[in-house]
Design a protein around this nucleic acid. Structure first.
Lengths: 220, 220
DNA sequence: GCAATAGTGTCTATTAGACAATATGGG
DNA sequence: CCCATATTGTCTAATAGACACTATTGC
């Protein structure tokens, strides 16, 4: 119980950043170089700075950029956790986000204050996570799954142009189970957020596949 | 722009407290007696006190009890809003909850720091709301509707014992549209969170209706 | 032609909505 | 018996999953 008396709580934003690697869903973990838990693995996150940030969303993006040099991904709020014992620094309020990074934009070099970073299996991260981040990661994954399970399309995980099969693989990676091709296509063919790129195909040693892109006002 | 320079943001919890009155969904609004917006109507809410509160949920319950003398309702987190301009007092972080109050427990006398309270139609509150509370109310209502629309049962809106017809009326009040009796019953008959109270019936000038109650570990 | 993947058609079990029929108590 | 509401049954259109079939390219 390293509880310092504070008038104000620490306010932080934490992000579960997901991407696809070889058709597997991965989440970004960082090893913290400095306090409060040197050497511990955690979700990227950091403290709100009212002088720099226009909102907690902004905090999340700023932290992500500083710690990982990752370009602006799509953010989705999951939940806010709070209490005196979550963080050894004292009473804290943390808003959790998840984000999806296109699989062709995984620079992810270690940035400031970060010893190293790693893309992990979100179900079994392979590291003991600091704070309550193991729980947060579970929540973020569950929220993402629920959304995709209800028909949301994780277009932000894919490059700008993609095939329907690639989109199906992305959904399968998130849900952790195979989907039926015909049913999947029936479902998404009505989605207005999907636009065929006329005349463009992915070619290989088989029938070419139509390329699609996200529609203009696409919001996940 | 009444922006004071602050090192820390104000952290608050706001609650959209719903109940049923004559089969209509109502939300509790309060008229603020003191700063920052004297006389303005708003959702009940207040500032986190790290010395008193074990979590933001606790803050919400404490504020609700102080301002309205309402007993512990069920709380559900909706979202967290933040930014320098939401609140005239400065940079703020507000976690929004909704809560359901049984229709037979609406004491709702004005408490501390509250001039008056009123149960309003959540779609047309009839008062201009302070801060961004109009938006928050819309979000809370949308979240509640989405949940009930997906089959969640708003048992917390009902007294301890209730009939299936009362439950259906509650869902209809939330969704704003009539539901088919047979379909509704088919759907909820499988729900394990519903238990028939054997031998107890609501009697009137018609066939008696079986009374039900929420099952033991019921979570909304 | 063959391999490989894209894209479509079909059959069926399940389900939600509409509506009707029956059940049961009070008067 | 009549009224009002509870409770159940039936019919149907829409849907999701399983599975098979056709299409189109490179080689």
């Amino acid at each position: 119980m390293a509880e310092k008396r504070r008038l104000y709580p620490i306010v932080t934003a934490d992000v579960a950043l997901f991407t696809l690697q070889e058709q597997r869903l991965r989440v970004l973990l960082i090893q913290r170089a400095n306090n409060p838990t040197p050497g511990g693995w955690a979700l990227p996150g950091g403290v709100l700075n009212p002088e720099l940030d226009a909102s907690l969303d902004h905090t999340a993006l700023r932290i992500l950029a500083a710690k990982t040099r990752v370009a602006l991904p799509h953010l989705e709020q999951v939940a806010t956790h709070s209490g005196p014992d979550r963080d050894p620094r004292g009473w804290s309020v943390s808003t959790l986000y998840y984000a999806l990074l296109p699989s062709d934009q995984v620079p992810a070099v270690a940035g400031d204050k970060t010893e190293s970073i790693e893309w992990c299996d979100p179900e079994r991260p392979g590291h003991r996570l600091a704070f309550d981040h193991r729980v947060l990661l579970g929540e973020a994954l569950a929220t993402l799954r629920e959304k995709v399970g209800r028909g949301a399309l994780p277009l932000h995980l894919l490059p700008a142009k993609f095939t329907l099969t690639e989109l199906q693989r992305a959904c399968e990676a998130i849900l952790g189970r195979p989907l039926d091709k015909a049913a999947f296509r029936r479902q998404i063919k009505e989605a207005p957020q999907l636009v065929a790129v006329e005349g463009e195909f992915l070619r290989g040693a088989q029938r070419p596949a139509q390329l699609y892109r996200a529609a203009g006002g696409f919001a996940f």
